[in-house]
Write a protein that binds this DNA or RNA. Structure first.
Lengths: 377, 377
DNA sequence: ACTCTCCAGACAATCGTTTGTCTAGTGCAT
DNA sequence: ATGCACTAGACAAACGATTGTCTGGAGAGT
């Protein structure tokens, strides 16, 4: 029964002169529609809608898209729009994308989904993209090189018009615009959004220096983390200027691919076993700093009384940890937004895009740093 | 040299009158392709590939998809595959989806992107979906009703074959399969993945009861949070069984839409101003618990010495907070994976899907709870 | 009555695939 | 030579939209 219904409608419609009858028939189809609203088999297409209206799909499309310069009487326009509402017509973005060669979709590459740093950037990206009417695929690769290589291709196959890569070691140019957050490699067609690491290093080191710290331990990031190298080089340069000594035996290196504080715990434990004196620690990031503080506490060292700790990033947990973390804030949400903004500009054909966009860090002083105390001096 | 090779083959293959010319041309186009690899204007389509090979697109498609039951000589097959590799052919998922009416794409609705709870669920979802070859759109709505209403439609317009809604107040049935994580409303076509809140309440209350706590403060979740109601009702029920009194003046209510510990801070401050005696607090979640602990500490109360605190969720920060949190773990990653698994089964036509999937909580005892001390007793 | 001009909308091509059907040619047995 | 069965691949029709071009008819002007 039901399947034949549209056929009837179609017949009447095609008849031409009996357009008025059609109005009556459409009453029936309303009943059918009631059912559709509850359990629609197929979404209504432009063709179905056109058949129902006794028009051709093209005309319906013109009306619904408000294409200018087409003469279509107001009455028809309203009839079309009413029908679209009634059938809850939703144009297939797939079909439209195929035709217009625009998908309003981008791909986001990210190492992990459940991590403080990455998700803060993601949220900036998401905010801007959604606001501009774009959707995005996210793909997480856990730093696996084959996935880093494969996913961009897949994303492009799905119509991504651009790609944002967060903390991802891209190897080569892609056929679409790319913006890399925390990317440092210079690749043609890739815009890097980075922190001003030089400034960041100054903020951290000056702060500790002013508090009287002279024996500072340093934690380097994992080799696969995009920022590790730059951050370290900046620290080395600034330390030299400030005449702060970087002692190899007080330099520890993160290795594990973790996004929990467990990351920083064991390396600090090892550092402590060396029994070298240090009054401050600059951590690679906040997550590791939290693990470091736990390791210090487990060794009966108080933060900041015995050891001051500076974190990096200012993730949400930083402010509420105990002790709360002094840290170098990266404006992660803003960086995500900027990345998205730049990408969309490039997608929209903006040619004079920047190769690099450096954002300023900020020193957030909280409880985990203090002047060198008598106890540790 | 090498680039012209396929041209030669083409000549032989085509057999047509002008095939040789064509072959020569295709040699040129290989050179052009070298450029394309660096800066491709358009990705190569099946048609381009077919023209190059002197075949029709259909045949190329048949080869690349290994369609069985088609007689195509091995030699041709290899020729096709070689060309595909050479041109780095990537089929347009868009076009394929349109034709096959399968997109291998789902939509994920989530309140926030940068939150511990949601992202842990997301990571489970992402793991399973990617593993199964699906991609997903994520859309965040910040609990705004109009977006909760609109996004599912947009996602379906983009071809989402199913939708996973995390902590999202869906109002009605959709035309595609839906799985709701932490959904409690019974909606036709929606599978709810929920924690066994009854069991969770037992674990939390028994634990505190066994530690000797009798004056327990309770924190209720925000009205818009899907779990709030169920969790509270379970607590009330279990408290009655255990003869634990729930005093209105010791019951606080979260209101703000935050995902930072700031969430729990002010409400606990207010509670403290009432100067009512309590020795334990059951928090709505870990994030709020961290804020609560901060508020207690700021009031010179020690956790767990003066007040024991039980969290909920076991987000990553829980284990590394100071003091580390005793909490009711939700297997968030697993819940995400289950949600994805169930959704894919339903998409693949599995009819006998469960209406609800309850997962067991786990009590994780850490530092934030302790027996009632002399000091607080 | 004739042409001219619009109007309202149809028609058809297209985007890049997939897939059912059709056919020219070949080889083989009769 | 005839018929038959295959082979290798072409052809065409979708999928659901967009968009440039075309046309039948109504109305206006002369």
């Amino acid at each position: 029964m039901q399947p034949s219904q549209p056929g009837v409608i179609l017949k009447a419609a095609k008849g031409g002169p009996d357009a008025s009858r059609l109005g009556a028939k459409s009453g029936d189809s309303m009943v059918q529609n009631k059912k559709d609203q509850k359990r629609s088999d197929k979404p209504v297409s432009l063709k179905i809608l056109a058949d129902y209206l006794g028009l051709c799909p093209a005309t319906v499309s013109l009306v619904l898209n408000n294409v200018p310069g087409r003469s279509i009487p107001q009455e028809t326009r309203e009839r079309v729009r009413a029908a679209a509402r009634k059938f809850n017509y939703q144009p297939s973005l797939l079909a439209r994308s195929l035709r217009k060669q625009r998908t309003f979709t981008v791909g986001v590459l990210v190492p992990e989904l459940s991590d403080g740093y990455h998700t803060m950037v993601m949220s900036g990206i998401g905010d801007h993209l959604m606001q501009e009417g774009y959707f995005y695929f996210s793909a997480h690769h856990r730093h696996k090189p084959d996935l880093v290589e494969e996913y961009p291709r897949l994303l492009m196959g799905r119509g991504a018009e651009g790609i944002i890569a967060i903390d991802t070691a891209l190897e080569h140019e892609l056929a679409v615009p790319v913006v890399a957050v925390a990317g440092h490699k210079k690749i043609s067609g890739v815009t890097n959004v980075v922190l001003d690491h030089r400034h960041a290093a100054e903020l951290a080191l000056r702060h500790l220096h002013q508090l009287g710290h002279r024996h500072i331990a340093f934690m380097r990031g994992q080799p696969f983390s995009s920022d590790s190298d730059h951050r370290w080089r900046s620290i080395v340069a600034v330390a030299r200027e400030l005449n702060i000594e970087i002692r190899p035996e007080l330099t520890i290196q993160l290795e594990k691919d973790l996004t929990s504080p467990e990351l920083g715990y064991p390396v600090v434990q090892q550092l402590l076993q060396l029994k070298r004196r240090f009054t401050a620690l600059i951590s690679f990031n906040d997550i590791a700093a939290i693990g470091a503080i736990r390791a210090l506490r487990d060794a009966n060292l108080l933060v900041p009384d015995d050891v001051s700790v500076v974190g990096f990033d200012d993730i949400k947990a930083a402010a509420y940890h105990n002790p709360s973390l002094t840290t170098i804030r990266q404006p992660l949400h803003d960086m995500g937004q900027s990345a998205a903004r730049i990408l969309l500009q490039r997608i929209q054909g903006f040619k004079d895009y920047p190769k690099e966009c450096a954002v300023p860090p900020e020193l957030i002083i909280r409880e985990s740093t203090a002047p060198v105390s008598g106890r540790s001096r």
